[in-house]
Design a protein around this nucleic acid. Structure first.
Length: 95
DNA sequence: CTAATGACCATTA
DNA sequence: ATAATGGCCATTA
């Protein structure tokens, strides 16, 4: 019933090399309109077991990150996620 | 209690 | 393509 925990749990289901959108996470936890609040929750994540860097915007741009968008992008890249001009390729997004 | 704040989104121009 | 707009909602002050 704790919103942040639900968000973190959903986040952990994203495999390495793939990403999900804030909106998708919101739907996963049964709160389809809480995409903005999802970002708020992820912002406070401090656990290395929660891959919050795998969550991006619905337009496939990188989105925010507590330690800088820069870091987020390189972490993804290091995991094998292809980014094109500030955009993640569709193929890397979870269906 | 209300008001402000954001790692957002879809629509419109 | 970009920018503005209104909506959305959990959290925090």
């Amino acid at each position: 019933m704790a919103f942040p925990e639900d968000v973190f749990r959903a986040c952990r289901r994203i495999p390495k090399g793939k990403v999900a959108t804030y909106s998708q996470i919101a739907r996963m936890i049964g709160r389809p309109r809480s995409c903005r609040a999802v970002g708020n929750a992820l912002n406070k994540n401090r656990s290395p077991f929660v891959p919050c860097h795998r969550v991006i915007r619905s337009d496939l741009s990188i989105g925010g990150f507590a330690h800088g968008t820069k870091k987020k992008a390189e972490m993804l890249k290091k995991e094998g996620v292809s980014i094109e001009k500030g955009r993640v390729l569709r193929a890397c997004v979870i269906r």
